[in-house]
């Protein structure tokens, strides 16, 4: 490749990966929520780990086109491992336990990724669903280790880094989840804007063509699936550590299905979809469930139907103006950068 071209490509990639104004705004808002909403830290904690979990699904669904109904398998494994590590005092320090749980989930992700390579979307739905069901059944069958249907009792989580003890108000938990979410988001952002991330998009767009230009499709899919499993495992471990509890429910089908809903609400393929979806889903659920504890699912269902009917594209049209404005402002701040057309769904 001629050096000029290399430079051009590198430049192009760098521009694509540039932070946009709305992204700064999003994370500033997240930071502000910690200081401005001290009474809501418990639900914000849930939003944070759900966002991470959704981000994980977005990595495979939005970027590699792998649809999954069994993402809870990795979430659940991470969850149980984190709880077990703490309960038996194997690894007391939460951050280390968190990483370990994520890595084990990644190993499971790697092992099962080969199943996902086979077949079309429908097969993948069934296979992923099957893996999650198997995991749940295994956990159910070894009550001596997992506590079975009653859940795992007596988990005590040590202070984070030996300094910060989880409190009943959820302050530490929220700060912890938010920091983990942010770090992993940065990592995911780095990955999807890298040449590897671009090649994934090519695979998603057309696997045959991707293969014919020399991208090894299977290797890419295995890698991203394993990577996403790591994220899901971390999300599960966050849940276990912030609640000091794990139950069979972490593997449940509903959890995987809700996760798809979160992504449908937020939109796939631009990293923020899962984050925004998690915020909307949880707040909506909390708000409606407070109004009507018995019938909140009806209203959620209705909202979802409306979202699908109106179509995110049309919502995106409205926000398109905002995005354009943001682009223009960003350009003014960085006049040297060449204008790059952002394909729909890739901007912030």
């Amino acid at each position: 490749m001629p050096p000029a071209l290399v430079g051009k490509v590198a430049h192009r990639l760098a521009t694509r990966a540039r932070w946009r104004l709305l992204e700064y705004a999003f994370w500033l808002a997240a930071l502000a929520s910690f200081f401005l909403l001290p009474n809501r830290h418990l639900i914000l904690t849930e939003i944070a780990w759900l966002a991470l979990f959704a981000l994980s699904l977005d990595l495979i669904l939005g970027y590699a086109g792998i649809i999954s109904l069994g993402h809870a398998a990795f979430f659940g494994l991470g969850s149980y491992l984190a709880a077990l590590l703490a309960k038996h005092g194997i690894v007391n320090e939460p951050v280390l336990a968190l990483v370990l749980s994520g890595l084990c989930a990644a190993v499971l992700g790697f092992a099962t990724s080969f199943l996902v390579l086979r077949g079309s979307d429908l097969t993948r739905l069934m296979v992923t669903l099957g893996v999650a069901l198997i995991m749940r059944e295994i956990a159910n069958q070894i009550p001596d280790i997992t506590g079975g249907a009653d859940g795992l009792q007596g988990v005590v989580i040590a202070p984070i880094l030996g300094l910060f003890q989880f409190d009943i108000f959820g302050h530490v938990a929220y700060a912890y989840c938010l920091i983990v979410l942010f770090i992993l988001f940065l990592l995911a952002r780095r990955v999807v804007y890298s040449p590897f991330g671009l090649s994934l998009r090519a695979v998603k767009g057309n696997p045959l063509r991707a293969a014919s230009i020399g991208i090894s499709v299977n290797a890419r899919l295995v890698t991203i699936y394993t990577f996403a499993a790591f994220y899901a495992g971390i999300a599960g471990a966050l849940l276990a550590q912030t609640t000091a509890f794990a139950s069979l429910d972490v593997f449940s089908f509903e959890r995987s299905a809700d996760l798809l809903l979160v992504l449908i609400i937020g939109g796939t393929g631009y990293l923020y979809g899962g984050l925004i979806g998690a915020v909307i889903f949880k707040l909506m659920q909390d708000w409606i469930a407070n109004l009507t504890p018995q019938y909140w699912q009806f209203w959620i269902g209705l909202v979802l139907v409306l979202i699908v009917l109106i179509g995110r594209d049309r919502i995106a049209l409205r926000t398109g103006g905002v995005r354009l404005l943001a682009e223009r402002i960003t350009r003014r701040f960085a006049p040297a950068a060449a204008p790059v057309a952002v394909p729909p769904g890739e901007g912030s």
């Binding site: 009474n39 904690t45 009653d150 959820g170 849940l239 139950s247 429910d249």
Partner: peptide, 29 residues
């Protein structure tokens, strides 16, 4: 159960309830 836990936590911390009522086994645990 993780919903139960968060809801109970909010009830204790935010609503300052004097008494909690719990339901099925995993939630109660």
């Amino acid at each position: 159960p993780d919903n139960s836990k968060r809801l109970a936590q909010e009830l204790i911390v935010n609503d300052k309830v004097a008494i909690i009522g719990s339901g099925i086994t995993p939630s109660a645990m």
